[in-house]
């Protein structure tokens, strides 16, 4: 990955490449030629630009963003941890293989982690155990409905 700090210079073609093809990438035998037609440049230039943007770290890949398979049960958990115990408790929480995502956030509820397990019972068991070991309540905030349709991320260039 590229070193941070070095400014990446983008022209209008780069910006359109980054913005207009985050979804709906052509499923045609020569997708880069189709994009080239839309941008008014050549196929080899499109490929070269994507290679350059990838090398510069602006593009991770041209490919799929997958929907997670919801195997088993999962929830989002939050704890209001005293400042001076956050590292100790974060480490304790990280010790569970059921935890796959653990963040400090700027709120009274300052420790946020995602739990996934084979079933609800195991989730409850882990949360109760964390409460027992830390003496701090764990808020269980399961997802009820998802509203987002991922169409990529429109970039603002100004």
């Amino acid at each position: 990955m590229r070193k941070p700090g070095k400014a990446l210079l983008l022209d209008d073609i780069d910006r359109r490449l980054l913005d207009d093809f985050q979804s709906g990438f052509p499923l045609a035998p020569r997708p880069f030629a189709e994009i080239a037609g839309r941008l008014g440049v050549g196929e080899s230039e499109v490929i070269a630009r994507i290679e350059r943007l990838t090398a510069a770290g602006a593009v991770s890949r041209v490919g799929p963003v997958l929907r997670p398979r919801h195997v088993g049960a999962s929830t989002l958990a939050a704890m209001a941890v005293p400042e001076d115990r956050i590292e100790e408790i974060a480490e304790l929480v990280n010790g569970y293989r059921e935890v796959n995502h653990n963040y400090e956030r700027t709120h009274r509820f300052n420790l946020w982690f995602v739990l996934t397990a084979a079933d609800e019972e195991r989730l409850t068991e882990v949360m109760e155990e964390i409460e027992d070991r830390t003496g701090i309540e764990v808020l269980d905030l399961p997802m009820l409905e998802e509203y987002h349709i991922d169409l990529g991320f429109p970039l603002q260039w100004t």
């Binding site: 490449l17 980054l18 093809f21 985050q22 979804s23 709906g24 990438f25 499923l27 994507i50 770290g57 602006a58 593009v59 991770s60 890949r61 041209v62 490919g63 799929p64 963003v65 997958l66 929907r67 991922d150 169409l151 990529g152 991320f153 970039l155």
Partner: peptide, 9 residues
């Protein structure tokens, strides 16, 4: 597949 295309960092 939620979307297919350029994945930007």
């Amino acid at each position: 597949i939620k979307r297919f295309g350029v994945v930007v960092r």
